[in-house]
């Protein structure tokens, strides 16, 4: 535990996939859990939205004394308010989920915040193993249970993956008693969002998988094999210019740059 660390976990209002009811978002709750394990009750949990939102109590029930809410109306751009607040308070670590369960759910918040703060962003982390001398050792979650060890200098933004430790149970009593502290905050309407049309998702037809494997051993191999990118190229020893050119060409080819 690093009591002197200033960690902020950002939480949103989640949505249950079956009932659509507001709840504690799974990844955000993992961010709070990670924060609690790193700095105990001192972790600051921050939400931009409505202080009257009941589901915030389920984050508080994880053992928070208080939860700060930047007051924003429904159509406001939360990432702007959060960015303002964070650049004003300059914490050491900002933890977010990978993607919100409700609203736009674009997964852009951590990127926008990192850009605004000018800090590095580590995506999809599973754990923060150690923080020493202003440097954090982070485990990043990769597909198929793989992990990548990364070292990052504080301060940084990290989005917490589902692979991180499951959040502790939320207790009703402490959740009720925790203080939800509303902070009136400047808000800017999210105009892009306002122009969106929302409609329930349609189920897309699923492509049937051809099972080629004949034996259990083959099926196991197929299930555990690393996905092999076919078209990639590893450039290690080429001069930087050549490497950059290759990236540029690829981006053009894929239509990212035009």
């Amino acid at each position: 535990m690093q009591p002197e660390l200033n960690i902020v976990a950002l939480v949103s209002v989640g949505q249950h996939p079956k009932s659509g009811r507001a709840r504690r978002a799974e990844q955000d709750a993992r961010a709070v859990e990670l924060g609690l394990r790193l700095s105990g009750e001192k972790v600051q949990v921050l939400h931009a939205g409505d202080v009257a939102e009941e589901s915030l109590r389920s984050y508080a029930g994880m053992g928070l004394k208080q939860l700060r809410v930047l007051q924003q109306s429904a159509g406001a751009d939360a990432s702007l308010a959060l960015g303002d607040y964070l650049s004003e308070h300059q914490p050491d670590i900002v933890l977010t989920g990978v993607r919100a369960e409700s609203g736009e759910s674009s997964g852009m918040t951590p990127y926008l915040l990192a850009e605004k703060l000018g800090w590095p962003l580590v995506t999809r982390i599973a754990d923060i193993a150690k923080i020493e001398n202003g440097e954090a050792e982070i485990l990043q979650a990769l597909p198929r249970g793989q992990r990548r060890a990364i070292k990052v200098r504080l301060p940084f933004v990290a989005s917490v993956d589902n692979a991180a430790e499951a959040p502790r149970q939320s207790a009703y009593g402490p959740g009720r008693r925790a203080q939800l502290e509303p902070l009136p905050w400047v808000e800017a309407a999210d105009e892009v969002r306002a122009s969106f049309d929302e409609a329930p998702a349609r189920k897309r037809p699923k492509r049937l998988k051809m099972v080629k494997a004949k034996t259990a051993a083959e099926r196991f191999k197929a299930a555990t094999a690393k996905s092999q990118g076919g078209g990639g190229r590893i450039m290690k020893d080429e001069p930087p210019r050549e490497q950059a050119q290759a990236i540029f060409d690829l981006l053009l080819e894929e239509g990212v740059l035009r």
């Binding site: 029930g61 994880m62 053992g63 502790r168 149970q169 939320s170 207790a171 009703y172 009593g173 402490p174």
Partner: peptide, 12 residues
């Protein structure tokens, strides 16, 4: 359960 949030097993 209500104060400690410590329901074991699949309780939570």
């Amino acid at each position: 359960t209500l104060e400690k949030g410590n329901t074991p097993g699949k309780g939570a």
